[in-house]
């Protein structure tokens, strides 16, 4: 069991890297900044993911696929900040939480509707909804909380 402070530090580093680059780091990239061996970094990553089960590694790998509210694996929920689109939200619900990763900035969520493919646009700043187009955009949970989490298709 790793030092809880180390698990916190690794979580923080992963989240910061996602915010800065749009992708999650590999554990080997986390080793040196955290003063760990590569093997220790891998073990710490597994502890982070165990402590944060709403995210997940890609099956049969140690690659971070999902680290909500962001996703390293692209989804249909494209996130732009300052005109730059380099992030993806884990799902439509988590997309509304991305605003808290970019304080003071307008966060733009664009996604195709799964029914018709037409684009939806939502803009938020510091938790406030600024733009919703069309105004009828709605969230939907298809299987209740729990069973659908982390399983494809992400419904």
């Amino acid at each position: 069991m790793a030092d809880p402070r180390l698990v916190d530090r690794m979580f923080h580093r992963i989240m910061r890297t996602l915010v800065e680059t749009g992708r999650a780091p590999h554990y080997a990239e986390l080793a040196r900044p955290l003063s760990l061996s590569v093997g220790e970094a891998r073990r710490a990553l597994l502890e982070v993911m165990q402590a944060y089960p709403i995210g997940w590694l890609h099956p049969e790998t140690d690659y971070i696929a999902s680290f909500p509210p962001l996703n390293s694996l692209p989804t249909q929920y494209r996130i732009s900040v300052r005109g730059e689109q380099k992030w993806f939200a884990q799902c439509g619900f988590e997309a509304t939480s991305v605003t808290w990763l970019f304080p003071g900035r307008t966060v733009r969520i664009e996604a195709p509707c799964l029914d018709c493919g037409d684009t939806m646009l939502v803009e938020m700043r510091d938790g406030r909804l600024l733009t919703v187009n069309p105004r009828s955009v709605v969230g939907h949970l298809n299987y209740g909380f729990g069973p659908s989490r982390g399983t494809p298709p992400y419904l």
């Binding site: 929920y77 969520i109 709605v138 949970l141 419904l155």
Partner: peptide, 12 residues
């Protein structure tokens, strides 16, 4: 956990 253009689109 998705967004849709409207409830009608969800049902379709």
């Amino acid at each position: 956990m998705n967004l849709f253009r409207s409830e009608e689109h969800v049902r379709r």
